[in-house]
């Protein structure tokens, strides 16, 4: 009587959890990679690129993966709410930060990064301003 086909409810259930976990893991790896970029890239704008792009993609993958695991429930609805919030706040916050940095006079680093300590225009002034506070 047991349903032994490939698409039996048990198999589908297991596949749902597996795909969900795999999505979540992929998203977490994206997030970690983005964080390495935030630590290693030379100036603010490249760091922001790394952080904001992986934030949205990583969060999307993680939240949709968890939604697959959670199934059709209140938990998944909350995850969906979190995702919608991220889609609004994360790019907006990045935009605000980049906007503020550009207006405050922090110049993007243009040219070839040779690995040694580089001089970025505006950085010293901003740092001094921050330290005064």
């Amino acid at each position: 009587m047991a349903d032994t086909s490939l698409f039996s409810p048990e198999n589908l259930e297991a596949a749902r959890v597996f795909v969900g976990s795999a999505l979540a893991l992929t998203g977490a790896v994206f997030s970690a990679a983005g964080s390495i970029g935030v630590l290693r890239f030379p100036d603010f704008y490249t760091r922001m690129h790394s952080a904001s792009v992986t934030d949205t993609l990583g969060a999307t993958l993680v939240l949709f993966g968890l939604m697959l695991i959670g199934g059709w429930s209140l938990v998944s609805f909350k995850l969906l709410c979190i995702w919608i919030f991220f889609m609004f706040t994360s790019p907006t916050a990045s935009n605000a930060a980049a906007n503020g940095a550009m207006k405050a006079g922090l110049e993007p680093f243009l040219g070839k990064w040779t690995g040694q300590k580089i001089k970025i225009e505006g950085q010293e002034a901003l740092r001094a301003q921050e330290d005064r506070e």
């Binding site: 935030v38 603010f44 760091r47 952080a51 934030d55 916050a93 990045s94 930060a97 901003l126």
Partner: peptide
């Protein structure tokens, strides 16, 4: 701004 970026992330 680097700090803001890192804290937000």
């Amino acid at each position: 701004y680097d700090r803001v970026l890192a804290v937000n992330s």
